[in-house]
Computed example of a mutant assay.
Amino acid sequence: MGECKLDHPHEDVAKKLESQKSVLPADISEKLDRFLNDTHPQETLNTLFHLLKKYDLASSEEQQERNKKLLTLVS
């Protein structure tokens, strides 16, 4: 995942999560839903967006790595 200079608003992050729910593990999806109920710094939103971006196209190894990062982000 390269460095992105765009700020992704909460709405875009929520849409990206919705688009990836069918491939995300259910427990992570639920945690992310709860996580997005709160307000977070822009940097956190950007990180979350990029972890979710093209998640469905990532290899299973890459998905596992992203899952670890997603869980770290929401805990």
Results as ranks from 00 to 15, higher is better:
1 M>E: 14
2 G>W: 06
3 E>K: 11
3 E>P: 01
5 K>D: 12
5 K>Q: 09
6 L>D: 14
6 L>N: 10
7 D>V: 13
8 H>V: 13
8 H>G: 07
8 H>A: 04
9 P>H: 13
9 P>L: 05
10 H>A: 12
10 H>S: 10
11 E>I: 08
11 E>K: 15
11 E>M: 06
13 V>D: 02
13 V>W: 10
14 A>M: 07
14 A>N: 01
14 A>C: 13
15 K>A: 15
15 K>M: 15
16 K>E: 15
16 K>L: 09
16 K>G: 01
17 L>H: 05
18 E>G: 06
18 E>S: 14
18 E>F: 04
18 E>C: 04
19 S>T: 13
21 K>Y: 00
21 K>A: 11
22 S>M: 05
22 S>C: 06
22 S>F: 07
23 V>S: 04
23 V>F: 04
24 L>W: 07
25 P>F: 09
25 P>V: 00
25 P>C: 02
26 A>K: 13
26 A>L: 13
27 D>S: 06
27 D>F: 06
27 D>E: 12
27 D>V: 01
29 S>K: 08
29 S>G: 09
29 S>P: 03
30 E>P: 02
30 E>F: 00
31 K>F: 00
31 K>S: 09
31 K>Y: 02
31 K>T: 00
31 K>R: 13
32 L>I: 10
35 F>L: 03
35 F>P: 05
36 L>R: 02
36 L>C: 08
36 L>M: 13
36 L>W: 02
36 L>E: 10
37 N>F: 01
37 N>E: 12
37 N>D: 09
37 N>K: 14
38 D>M: 10
38 D>C: 03
39 T>F: 08
39 T>R: 15
40 H>K: 12
40 H>M: 10
40 H>T: 07
41 P>N: 10
41 P>F: 09
41 P>T: 06
42 Q>S: 14
42 Q>C: 11
43 E>S: 15
43 E>Y: 05
43 E>N: 14
44 T>Q: 11
45 L>Q: 08
45 L>A: 04
46 N>P: 09
48 L>K: 02
48 L>H: 08
48 L>Y: 06
48 L>C: 14
48 L>M: 11
48 L>S: 04
50 H>M: 15
51 L>P: 05
52 L>T: 05
52 L>Q: 01
52 L>N: 04
54 K>Y: 12
54 K>S: 14
54 K>I: 01
55 Y>S: 09
55 Y>P: 08
57 L>C: 04
58 A>I: 03
58 A>W: 02
59 S>T: 15
59 S>F: 01
60 S>P: 06
61 E>Y: 14
62 E>F: 12
62 E>H: 11
62 E>Y: 09
63 Q>G: 08
63 Q>N: 06
63 Q>S: 00
63 Q>Y: 07
64 Q>I: 01
64 Q>C: 03
64 Q>G: 06
65 E>G: 05
65 E>Y: 08
66 R>K: 02
66 R>A: 03
66 R>D: 02
66 R>S: 03
66 R>H: 09
67 N>C: 01
67 N>Y: 02
67 N>H: 03
68 K>Q: 00
68 K>E: 03
69 K>R: 15
69 K>Q: 11
69 K>I: 10
70 L>A: 05
70 L>F: 03
70 L>G: 04
71 L>K: 12
71 L>Y: 00
71 L>T: 04
72 T>H: 10
73 L>I: 08
74 V>L: 00
74 V>G: 08
74 V>S: 00
75 S>K: 14
75 S>Y: 05
75 S>F: 05
